[in-house]
Amino acid sequence: MRILLIEDDSLIGDGLKIGLEKLGFTVDWFDDGLDGKEALMQAPYDAVVLDLGLPGEDGLDILQDWRRQGHKEPVLVLTARGDVDQRIVGLNSGADDYLGKPFALKEVQARLNALIRRNHGNINPLITYKDITFNPQTREITKDGKTVVMSPREIALLELFLLNKNKVLSKEVIENKIYSWSDEVQSNAVEVHVHHLRKKLGKDIIKTINKIGYILGEA
């Protein structure tokens, strides 16, 4: 899942980027409100983590602008001010959830997973497809009840397919979802990861649609 992180505090921003990436997210981090606001137009993000006290442009203004422009990405607001008023203003400005500082990385992860799940219309925290089950919080994958060991990037790719069942995903979309701006992408990376998924979960799990992309399920 690709996350847009806008946070001006270098230690928090850096920690969130590295930590969330370790937890399976693909993260683009901006420490300036203006750049962060623009970034949402440049890549297909699954969720946004937005700090309110931002240089450049205030977090709430950015959020209101996005919503006015019709951006539907779920937004998790980080606020240092714990007061109720600000949370209400935040939620009323288009935020989907908020976290007051100080917060734990795991909580950010849990809230992002919940937001993304809801955004895809899922209620169950576990995502299943046939005999495959994926737990977004623990990043655990089981097939027939048995744990399958995978690299983080493979898990991210599987998660992408599981959340977009029966939809054709182009190679470009896949790259945009599982790689951040800071990642170097090999030209055949997606093919390699798909190959590994088929090897571990069964040949037929992901079909190749010629010249268009890949699909999990039926077109």
Partner: peptide, 29 residues
Amino acid sequence: HELRSPLTALKIQLEVAQLSKDGSSERME
């Protein structure tokens, strides 16, 4: 209030260190 941000940073960085493998450069960082 002002202590919230540095404390958040400490907490997050500590969690990153915990998530990183023993002796890895990520943990050292």
